[in-house]
Write a protein that binds this DNA or RNA. Structure first.
Lengths: 204, 204
DNA sequence: GCTTAGAACTTTACACCGTCAAGTTTGGCT
DNA sequence: AGCCAAACTTGACGGTGTAAAGTTCTAAGC
């Protein structure tokens, strides 16, 4: 059925994306090249063209996989956190930062301006699911404008992560970063609204 | 003296940097190429080598000029703001955002991971001066930890700007963005310490 | 079971890129 | 005047994305 097996190679597409992730991890976004992923998968330099007509398409697939791992990092950090709204939001930030630290090149590829297909269905699905995690953990803090709180947390953690990846001094280690966010969350007036009826019961 | 005039061209270095800024403005960081800036300056493809041994050196010079304009944007916005500590800090953020919106490609080049010389003296001077602006406007808010306040404001505005440049929806127009920051600054508990003696009076 | 259509892949080719290695021109200093 | 070194040109090499054409194999239809 969905065996996806190629004639000669046997599921080349996934191999190319895997090789792409390795290249980006080792050499940053600009190290991602069609010819190199082809070489890594032991196929000719033009073989990827059938799966990814253009470099932008390959980037898109790598970025989509990046968002999946990104989401996994956040979910895992949330799961590790104490079960309070405050700690879960903080946990999402921790996961965000850990991902940026674990995959700096991929992080830059995902959020930089390297040309890719923003409308790609697979990418949109993956990035929407990532953003939904942030929206979910900031939902309890609808004290002021919920969109404001969401955007504030997102900007804060994304800015910090970007500066850290960009090699700015100060952000030192992950431990220091998490301590900073803990202090900052204590400082923000995250007024926690009653869970707004934990959900109006979808009724069907 | 410091005429810098070249034999044939007459100050090629500046022309190459200018052409580089135009390329980045039009086509993003990856559009910056040695051969294209050479063509734009009507010199051979190897002419830039004497001024910029490598693409990374050209990038470094373009980025340094970017920081100078970046700082100018912030200074101008601060000058336009009412003369209160709160409004000046907010003004710096406005300038930050206006720069990112005015030069999205340059912004990404400056803060992305494209290889360049982080130790370059000219670049370090320009970026230090930019960071000093943020440090200056956040200095009055030493309510908690001064470094924390500085880093929080920096992360917040940088994250928002990065997301906006990255094409994320929502950040719509500059007006909406500035309104968001105005609300957010009102929400933060920016406790303003006594100006710590408005400056110990440099004496002299 | 054979044939055949088309997908998957290879080969070849082209334009562009960064960079190196030589030449050539030119301006300024002795 | 003569020379030298800086500024620039020319040419070449390997690497890149991508288009076009050729080859091989799979799977479906009869």
């Amino acid at each position: 059925m969905s065996q996806k097996k190629s004639h000669h190679h046997g599921n080349l597409r996934a191999a190319l994306v895997d090789a792409g992730l390795a290249l980006v991890r080792d050499g940053g976004p600009d190290a991602l090249s069609i010819r190199k992923v082809a070489a890594a998968a032991n196929v000719s330099h033009a073989a990827p063209a059938h799966h990814f007509p253009t470099l932008a398409h390959l980037r898109t697939a790598v970025i989509a996989e990046g968002y999946r791992r990104f989401r996994a990092f956040m979910e895992e950090a949330i799961a590790q956190a104490p079960d309070t709204a405050h700690d879960r939001a903080l946990g999402a930030c921790f996961g965000y930062l850990r991902f940026a630290r674990a995959y700096p090149g991929l992080f830059d590829l995902m959020f930089g301006t390297h040309a890719h297909d923003h409308e790609d269905a697979e990418l949109c699905a993956a990035s929407d699911e990532s953003y939904a995690v942030l929206a979910r953990v900031s939902a309890p803090f609808a004290g002021n404008d919920p969109a404001d709180t969401e955007l504030a947390i997102w900007s804060l953690v994304h800015g910090f992560a970007s500066l850290a990846v960009g090699g700015q001094k100060m952000l030192a280690d992950q431990e220091t970063a998490e301590a900073f966010f803990t202090r900052l969350f204590a400082r923000l007036d995250l007024v926690e609204t009653a869970p707004a009826t934990p959900r109006p019961a979808p009724e069907i």
